[in-house]
């Protein structure tokens, strides 16, 4: 009987000790902020376009951390959804069409002849990528433009175009191989042998 009591007391004592240690640790090593939000934010494309319904990428990251669905980011597209699903260990779901379609990356272009210098697009740009002043022609700093589209709506003369980014030699990517074809050039006999074998 006493053995049982001793065991209970020992376990109780252990529980108390660990409780104290854990309690102390939770206070002493408290993490400021929510690290998962930062991780989610890092995966989002940072266009700050607001198509998800939140005012920027970080608010959406916070919303996702708070339980919102992960398929509301058209600029990120399916790859972002997959990355998020991977991070959060949830099922990857298709992009929600309600928030827009996945479009090729584009940059804003101001037709400078038509610009009246109203500065409305400058105020709309979330990343300060538009240069200009009142009554002066504006222009987009292409390297800073995230292609978020937000400047198109406010333009009173509709002089802003979203131009898809063209692939240059520097941005060209080797295409993913189509399964079933393409072999290195010197596979002369082998290919035919194999083809013959298959046939």
């Amino acid at each position: 009987m006493s053995a049982v009591i001793i065991a209970i007391l020992v376990l109780l004592g252990l529980a108390v000790v660990f409780g104290i240690v854990l309690g102390f640790a939770s206070v002493r090593f408290k993490v400021e902020g929510n690290p998962i939000v930062d991780q989610i934010d890092a995966l989002l494309p940072q266009t700050q376009c607001g198509q998800c319904g939140y005012p920027g990428c970080r608010p959406y990251a916070e919303a996702i951390a708070g339980g919102d669905t992960i398929n509301k980011c058209p600029p990120g597209g399916q790859s972002t959804i997959e990355a998020l699903a991977d991070l959060l260990d949830v099922e990857a779901i298709p992009l929600d069409d309600e928030h827009g379609e996945e479009k090729p990356r584009s940059v804003a272009y101001i037709r400078e002849d038509e610009c009246i210098g109203c500065t409305k697009c400058i105020q709309a740009c979330p990343v300060d990528a538009i240069l200009g002043a009142a009554k002066q022609m504006h222009t987009v700093i292409t390297s800073e433009c995230t292609g978020c589209d937000l400047c198109v709506e406010p333009c009173p003369v509709d002089c802003i175009d979203m131009i898809p980014i063209e692939t240059t030699l520097n941005t060209w990517k080797w295409p993913a191989p189509k399964p079933g074809i393409e072999l290195i050039a010197t596979d002369a006999g082998r290919g035919s042998v194999q083809q013959g074998g298959i046939a």
Partner: peptide, 29 residues
């Protein structure tokens, strides 16, 4: 007869462009 090098080249390009995008996103942020 798997075109392995093609896969690697493509994967490299993807990683590079992802990195570029990541840099750009960070910059935008």
């Amino acid at each position: 007869a798997i075109p392995l090098v093609q896969y690697y080249r493509n994967a490299k390009a993807e990683i590079r462009s992802d990195e570029a995008e990541q840099r750009k996103a960070e910059h935008a942020r």
